[in-house]
Design a binder for these strands. Sequence first.
DNA 1: CAGCGCCCCTGCCCGC
DNA 2: TGCGGGCAGGGGCGCT
Length: 271
Amino acid sequence: MPELPEVQTTCNGIAPIITGKTVTDVVVRKRQLRWPVTAGIKNKLIGHQVIKVWRRGKYILLQFDKGSLIVHLGMSGHLAVVDQKQEVKKHDHVDIFFGPTTVLRYHDPRRFGAVLWTAANPLEHALLHNIGPEPLGPEFTADYLFTVTRKRKRIIRDVLLDGKIVAGIGNIYANEALFRAGIDPRRAAGRISRVRMQKLVTALVEVLSAGIRAGGTTLRDFRGGDGRPGYFQQSLSVYGRSGEPCPVCQQIIDSEIRGGRSLFYCRRCQI
DNA sequence: CAGCGCCCCTGCCCGC
DNA sequence: TGCGGGCAGGGGCGCT
């Protein structure tokens, strides 16, 4: 499910329901995710109260009165509050009960995600302590991106996907932002000017903000309840649109696979 | 250290 | 209709 806007939307959805509530039970149906669900998590959680729900990059953080739960959705994870009467579906791996009916349910077909407990500051956890600045935060500026990419030969798309440089950018939003900024995703990061880096930072902020405003419905498998075509269809300019005309100049959108992930771009608009 | 593949896993879509 | 191949939103890890 992820991409930062979907993770933020997940936090926004569950925070008002579970903040201040106390865990009454935990059911783990399958421990084997990317890493095994922390052993003894049931006893660590029961009786403890949620203080706040937040995120760092794509890691969802449930802060309890003692310790934090770190949840990552991988490629296919969902995390939502459901009613206990809701039937348990295939790939519903973890349930966290807040009373008899309210359940925070983790669902993840591909199991690339994670559910981990830490008693310490989650930002100091091995998975988080080296993450780059938040793309919607004050540290993520054109100067920063320009400086850290000097002499870098990697293509700019791969730099945007590198969580050590900037947190939470996924392949959809990387491609979309590069289109908006008019930058060829295959360009060596170290060969992009400061002015163009400013365009890229601005484009990233716009694209991520639009995704959050849309409620994170920019994913192919999002199911809206109203039967309308998914926001996914209308919202993306180049991602998943190879062979279609560029919305700006009508040039046919190109795609190719680099580093195991698809690039989508307009060879006329992006240089 | 920078950079690049590999891989974890299931589901879905496409072509034959 | 069945089957095989390719691809999917992530990102840690090991190797060069």
